[in-house]
Simulated assay, not measured.
Amino acid sequence: MHELISGRWSARGYDPTASISVDDVATIVDAGRWAPTWGRMQPVRFVVGRRDDPTFAALTGILTRGNAGWAPRSAALILVCTTEDPDDAKADTYAAVDCGLAVGQMILQAQALGFNAHPMAGFDAEAARDAFGIPAGQRPLVLLGIGALAEPSSLPDDIRARDEKPRTRLPLDEVAFAGQWGTPAFPELPTT
């Protein structure tokens, strides 16, 4: 597995004094723009804020309680939106898939630039619509925090404890099947 994937994790312990350049944020957003898209729809849109600008302040204002304690320490916050069409289930589904692909590429691009990216669902989508004039037919789906990791000793105990937890995933034989559901696709590989 590529080190950008194996080394990726969603930290909360960001350095509140670290900054990110306009060029780096633009590169991260551009990585999302170039993500695969179903039927060339290109439904994904971005609301971008860097620390100390009005957009960033408004984005911190839509955070829910769990994320409000750490996400304002990010150097940038990016609200990722996609089209919403409840009358067309296929288009609605693939717009969400496109959004996920864009966020995934943005996370890896942030990692490649030496930053950490943390996707969040913990924000008030209606407040986002109001704050940014997001039109009908657009769905705020993911808020992405991007930051530089802080020195662990400088973090509040609760954030440090969460960041120090080992990163784990279910074993491959529990998620990848062949033939029948539950039959491991790769039985010859060790289960770790």
Rank of each mutant, 00 (worst) to 15 (best):
E3A: 13
E3L: 11
I5K: 02
S6E: 13
S10L: 07
R12V: 07
G13R: 07
T17F: 09
A18V: 04
A18M: 07
A18W: 01
A18R: 09
I20W: 05
V25G: 05
T27I: 09
A31R: 08
G32D: 04
W34T: 03
P36F: 06
W38V: 05
G39L: 11
R40L: 14
M41L: 15
V44P: 02
V44M: 08
F46R: 07
V48C: 11
V48H: 09
T60D: 06
A68H: 08
A68Y: 09
A68V: 04
A76D: 06
L77D: 07
I78K: 08
C81P: 03
T82Q: 13
D85M: 04
P86K: 11
D87N: 14
D88E: 05
V97S: 01
L101H: 13
M106G: 06
I107F: 01
G122I: 07
A125M: 10
A128K: 06
A128C: 05
A128M: 09
R129T: 13
F132D: 03
G133Y: 12
P135G: 13
G137N: 09
L141K: 04
L141E: 12
L143W: 11
E151C: 02
P152R: 07
P152C: 07
L155D: 07
D157P: 09
R160Y: 03
A161G: 05
K165P: 00
K165Y: 01
T168V: 12
R169P: 01
D173C: 02
E174C: 08
V175M: 14
F177T: 03
G179N: 02
G182A: 10
G182F: 00
T183E: 14
T191N: 14
